[in-house]
Design a protein around this nucleic acid. Sequence first.
DNA 1: GCGACAG
DNA 2: ATCTTGTCGC
Length: 269
Amino acid sequence: MARRETEPPEQETLRRWEREQAQLKANVIEEDTEEWQKDSTFAGLERVGGVDLSYVKGNDTVACASLVVLSYPELEVLYEDCQMVTVSAPYLAGYLAFREVPFLVEAAQRLQEREPGLRPQVLLVDGNGVLHHRAGFGVACHLGVLTGLPCIGVAKNLLQVDGLAKDEQHKGQIRDLQMGGDVFPLRGTSGRVLGMALRSYNKSTKPIYVSVGHRTCLESAVRLVQSCCRYRIPEPIRQVRRQGQLGGEDPSLSWETWPVREGVTGICE
DNA sequence: GCGACAG
DNA sequence: ATCTTGTCGC
């Protein structure tokens, strides 16, 4: 019988993870490093990626690790990959990367082997970048440093760190977002702007929370995310989540048949 | 004991 | 994250 629940981490494991975050943090680049980022229309940007893990209902350990690459600015799917995996680390706020990043790195490596020409020029990651506890090193930074790719963190909920809270002031700022593209900065008690709340399109009242992962500044990160939004969730993440949920539900994919799943893994024409 | 809690 | 019905607005 397959394991259905992850083990809670030992204190020692947490300390090790914190040391690892602090060490990798030194490699984060919170500035634009690509030519296309400097252009107001992102001229030269052709491929935007999205990564995600979606979980199978009722099981803490089985997940579908997915990666998609979309064309830019058309936002059409060029590549999609979905791989069933067994997760061992539990979900703990602040340590999400240790649960998900290993499988996302593998997905990026598969892409590099299969279709190096489709390597995304920037990756949107479900979760936060520098908007994070302690070291300020969320999953988007972690994945960025390990892959070397520019990464942007996109969270659907506010991670309440450094004094940030869903208080009345925050709710008022949300009410003041009038239309798609409106933003307000997320300034922590430390005075530092950790990210931006973005009303990603006109119909959605609830913002998304954008933060720097790697090789981008916050301004171009927000601008890029907004340019990828047809709905509240930016298209690369929306597409990769759809892909992952299909993988998790696919009845042809029994416990015995993975890790291979034909018809889902591979290049889309 | 109470609140917080990305995915 | 995932479980789930109806409901409100355009």
